[in-house]
Structures are given as C-alpha cells and as structure tokens.
Design a binder for these strands. Structure first.
Lengths: 156, 156
DNA sequence: TTAGGTGCAAATCATTTGCAATCTC
DNA sequence: GAGATTGCAAATGATTTGCACCTAA
C-alpha cells in the first residue's frame, strides 16, 4: 500500500515518463530545457501560466528563454497532452496533469484555479450532439467566485 | 397575440431602450456612434467580436473608430450589461442580449457560437459554494464541436 | 552527421491609453 | 459651458516567428 503522497509522486513520475517516451517516439528531442519545463508542469497543481513556468525554469536553467517555454506548450497542445484555459485579456493557464476537460473553480480575485471534483459532464455532450447535430470534441466548465482566503482578506 | 418575429423585435427594442435609459441615468451620453454600436449588439445573435461590430458600424458611421467600440464594450462590461466570452489567442465574443451566464455551443471550425437551450446550471453553483467555501459570482459552460455545416464541408 | 531545438530580437494581434478636438446635455 | 466622448496614434501585453547557432540522437 502507498500513502497519499507516495501515490501522487508515482502518478507524477509516470505522467512525466510517459510523456517523455511519447515525445521521443514521435521524433522529438528531450533537451535539458524541455525536460525541466515538462517536469515543472508535471509537478505543478496550480494551473500555471507560461510566464510562471518560465520564471521557475530559469532558477535551474538561467539561459532558458520564454520562447522555448511557449514552443514547448505549443508542442504539448498539438499532441493533446495539455489543457489550455484561455481568458479575456490575461495569459492562458495550463494543466498538464489532466489534459482532458474537467470543471474548474476560479477565484476572480487572486486567480487561483482548482480542479472541481464533481461528476464530469461527459454524458451531457453526447445528448447535445444528437440534438443540435454538433460533433462535440471538448467542453469547458468554469465556476468563478471568491475563494475563502480572498473573502477573509476582503472583510478585514 | 404576437408572431415570433414580432416578439423578437419587441424584446430587442426594449433591451436597447432600457439600456439607453440606464446609461443616461448613470450620467453617460448617448452619441450617435454609441447608439449605433448598442443597436448592432442588440440586434446581433451571433455573439460578435469587437472587430465585427466595428466593421458594421462603419457602414453607417464611417468615421467611427475601433477604440470607440472597445470603450463602449468596456462600459457595458462595467455595468454588467454584456457577457464576454474570452478565448486563448483569439478576440473575445460578446452577448448583449443575454448578459447572464448561459451555456454555449461553439464550432471549432467556423467559430460560430450559439446559445444552448438547456436548463441552466444556476443551482449547481450554490452547492459548490457550500462545499468549497467559494462565493460563486459567475460561471461558464461551453461545448466545443463541429457544427453540421462544417461537418458537411469537411466530408466533401 | 543532421534534423530538431534554442535564444534572441523583431513581428504580430488584440486591446488599452493619452490627449487634443468635439460633441451631448 | 462643463464634462463626457471621440478618434487618432502610440503604448501595452501576450504570443509567435525568423533565423543563425547549437546539440541530442
């Protein structure tokens, strides 16, 4: 049996390892920068932005450029291996851990994003498909609100 | 009794009239440009972008600038009178007719956006609020797929 | 060896802003 | 007439691109 932490580490490692293997198979090269970027995404629960990941990669690989992070994200998007959450007038946020659609809870104050553990909407799309004649490929469900911490902060 | 078309015209007019009155009350001025922009938004079912509205206002008011359309949209956002749908790497789309959150069906090919007439998710947010301690103010539900027309086009 | 990848700087795209001239109320 | 609005052009911010150099396989 594994502790919760051990399970998380295991999942994280297999996600990273699997991704690296898949990229290699597709003829891509695993450079130190790219590996560092993938590792950060794989470890980060916070749905980070490109800028955020860039700042952290720099700590280990100071010469890494922002363009490289963007190019890596583009590659991951093309492979369907990362979920992008786009917003009006703000940078996109990414989820490498769960690339499939799932609902999010987004704080309108601090912009924290957390996954929502409620049943997925996967059956709903199929009934829609029939009704409207659309071939559904994806969906997005976000709830916007003020997180507990920001509520406390605001009431001071 | 009214025909469906008459009802639509009525709703459209009252939406526009109500909006104009509200803006006046809040000390804003109704310039010809602004009125034309509001009218286009009020008549447009397609969730238009700023650029799209701009192109159409130009037909009647050729000197109208893109900046003015953006400023009008900003004003409407501040008043909570327009719904903004933001996307990664594309311009936002707007809904003046139904400023409250409601689900959309979005074609990934032609980017057409249609309202989805299914029951709202208004009760779900409240249960989430309790569970996570968030104060929900808004939500977004999008389904992405290929619309019937684009499916036909693709299969040719 | 040789594609593929990197990093810089410049380009692009959507959106915002500063400000003088111009209107609405 | 006062203050809000307009339109231009320049600024901003996120993301992409071109290209000479580098490096993983």
């Amino acid at each position: 049996l594994y502790s919760q932490t051990e399970v998380q580490v295991k999942n994280r490692e297999s996600r990273l390892a699997g991704l690296v293997e898949k990229l290699r198979q597709d003829g891509h090269r695993i450079t130190p920068q790219r590996l560092a970027i993938l590792k950060l995404f794989a470890e980060d629960e916070s749905h980070p932005s490109v800028e955020h990941v860039y700042q952290r990669v720099r700590l280990d690989y100071p010469t890494t450029s922002l363009a490289t992070v963007y190019k890596t994200v583009l590659l991951l998007k093309e492979k369907g291996e990362i979920l992008e959450l786009g917003f009006a007038g703000a940078s996109s946020r990414y989820d490498l851990k769960r690339p499939g659609p799932h609902p999010h809870l987004i704080c309108v104050e601090c912009h924290r994003i957390v996954d929502l553990d409620i049943g997925t909407f996967d059956d709903l799309p199929q009934s829609l498909a029939r009704e409207y004649g659309y071939q559904i490929v994806n969906h997005r469900v976000d709830f916007y609100g003020v997180c507990p911490e920001c509520q406390t902060r605001a009431s001071k």
